[in-house]
Amino acid sequence: MTAQRQERNQMRLRIALIGLLSLGLIAAASSPGVQAATTERVVADRNTGLAIDGFDPVAYFTDREPRQGQAQFEASASGVVWRFCNDDNRKFFLARPDIYGPQFGGYDPVAVARGVPLAGNARVWLISGQRLYLFDREENRDAFAASPERYLHDARERWPGLLATLSE
């Protein structure tokens, strides 16, 4: 093989590698996926740092529905930013985040019971035993509602191990 052909083949190889790397980066950047960070102890939006998509965690209890929080009523707790509808809700949450915050850091308790940290959806929720739970999908919420103690037993057993794998 001539030196000129060897150089041409090396150039083609470099171009192919650059193309493959570019495709990989484009695919990684544009892949549809959950916008919530699933390697954190509390589920938060990767872009904004907001917990539960900016919904007010106290409103689930007081208004019995998810309500979008406002930027002027924010608080930082557990490494994420929480938004509230008003200052009273903010104060209630800061006094008792263990009560008002979603259980299992906002991860779906049905998935946690299986040993999988799957981010819950702020619009698929349930209050059970005076605690807020977020679910990935309605089927998981319905299964949990039918037998909360069954799922909670397994989820509570597995949560410490899962928590250890999630970054702070």
Rank of each mutant, 00 (worst) to 15 (best):
M1V: 09
M1W: 04
T2H: 08
A3E: 13
A3W: 09
A3S: 11
R5E: 06
E7F: 14
N9C: 11
N9P: 05
Q10A: 15
Q10T: 09
M11H: 13
M11N: 14
R12N: 14
L13C: 09
R14G: 10
R14E: 15
I15T: 12
A16S: 14
A16V: 14
L17V: 15
S22R: 03
S22M: 13
S22G: 11
L23Q: 09
A27M: 12
A29H: 12
P32W: 03
G33L: 00
A36V: 01
T38Q: 11
T39R: 10
T39K: 10
R41C: 01
R41W: 06
V42Y: 05
V43W: 04
V43C: 05
A44D: 00
D45T: 02
R46G: 05
R46Y: 01
G49Q: 03
L50M: 02
I52E: 00
I52F: 02
G54S: 04
F55Y: 13
D56N: 05
P57A: 01
P57H: 00
F61G: 02
T62W: 04
T62G: 02
R64F: 08
P66F: 00
P66N: 03
R67T: 02
Q70S: 13
E74G: 07
S76Q: 13
A77E: 12
S78T: 06
S78H: 13
S78P: 06
S78F: 11
G79H: 03
G79C: 07
W82G: 00
N86D: 15
D87W: 06
D88R: 12
N89T: 04
R90H: 06
K91A: 15
F93Y: 03
F93H: 00
A95E: 13
A95D: 14
A95H: 14
I99L: 14
I99T: 15
P102W: 05
P102A: 09
P102L: 07
F104R: 04
G106N: 01
Y107F: 12
P109N: 06
V110Q: 01
V116M: 10
P117Y: 03
L118A: 14
L118V: 15
G120S: 04
G120W: 08
A122F: 02
L126S: 10
S128M: 04
Q130H: 11
R131T: 04
Y133H: 08
Y133P: 02
Y133D: 04
L134E: 01
E138K: 11
E138S: 13
E139T: 15
E139H: 07
E139M: 10
N140V: 13
A143R: 13
F144A: 02
A145L: 10
A145H: 07
P148I: 07
R150L: 11
Y151K: 02
Y151L: 07
L152C: 03
D154H: 09
R156H: 14
E157I: 11
R158Y: 03
L162E: 05
A164L: 08
T165S: 14
E168Y: 12
